[in-house]
Amino acid sequence: MAIGVILGLLVGAVLGLTGAGGGILAVPALIFGLGISMPQAVPIALIAVGMGAALGAFYGLRRGTVRYKAALLMGAAGVLGSPLGVAMAHRLPAQGLSLLFAAIMVLVSLRTLRQARGLGSPAHQADAAKTCRISPNTGRFVWTGKTAATLGAIGVISGLCTGMLGVGGGFIIVPALAHYTELRMHSIVPTSLTVIVLVSAFTVASFLAQGLVIAPPEWAFIGAVVAGMAVGQYLARRLTASVLQRGFASVCLVVAGLLIARSLM
Results as ranks from 00 to 15, higher is better:
120 G>C: 04
248 F>T: 07
35 G>N: 09
155 G>Y: 15
17 L>A: 04
236 A>C: 12
50 G>L: 04
144 T>L: 13
116 A>F: 09
213 V>D: 10
73 L>C: 05
130 K>H: 09
182 E>A: 12
150 T>Q: 06
119 L>K: 05
193 L>I: 05
85 G>S: 08
66 V>T: 13
253 L>N: 11
34 L>E: 05
130 K>Y: 06
212 L>S: 15
257 G>N: 02
62 R>N: 07
112 T>M: 14
104 I>Y: 00
152 G>L: 13
168 G>I: 00
72 L>A: 06
38 M>L: 04
76 A>T: 03
202 F>G: 01
160 L>R: 04
64 G>T: 06
99 L>G: 12
238 R>H: 14
140 R>L: 15
248 F>L: 08
126 A>C: 08
37 S>E: 03
68 Y>I: 10
54 A>K: 00
62 R>M: 14
84 L>V: 09
228 G>Q: 04
198 L>S: 05
49 V>W: 00
72 L>F: 07
24 I>C: 08
178 A>M: 07
178 A>W: 00
203 T>S: 10
187 S>F: 02
180 Y>Q: 03
184 R>T: 15
177 L>E: 05
133 R>W: 12
147 T>D: 14
45 A>G: 14
59 Y>H: 12
131 T>I: 15
247 G>I: 05
182 E>H: 03
55 L>S: 02
70 A>Y: 08
187 S>C: 15
249 A>F: 00
265 M>V: 04
147 T>P: 10
198 L>W: 04
173 I>A: 00
212 L>A: 10
30 L>Q: 12
236 A>V: 13
136 P>A: 05
240 T>D: 11
91 R>V: 07
128 A>T: 03
191 T>C: 10
121 S>D: 07
115 Q>V: 08
169 G>K: 03
86 V>I: 13
140 R>K: 13
215 A>D: 12
37 S>T: 13
200 S>R: 12
183 L>R: 01
76 A>W: 00
64 G>A: 07
60 G>T: 13
79 V>N: 07
7 L>C: 11
7 L>V: 04
236 A>R: 10
68 Y>E: 13
34 L>N: 04
67 R>Q: 11
129 A>F: 09
40 Q>C: 00
255 V>E: 12
53 A>T: 05
97 L>D: 15
126 A>E: 14
232 G>Y: 15
183 L>G: 10
159 G>C: 08
213 V>T: 10
95 Q>Y: 11
118 G>R: 03
66 V>N: 14
183 L>E: 06
190 P>W: 13
16 G>P: 11
170 G>C: 02
183 L>C: 02
129 A>Q: 14
38 M>R: 05
99 L>C: 14
104 I>P: 01
89 A>S: 13
248 F>P: 10
90 H>G: 08
243 V>W: 15
245 Q>G: 14
78 G>E: 09
197 V>T: 04
174 V>N: 03
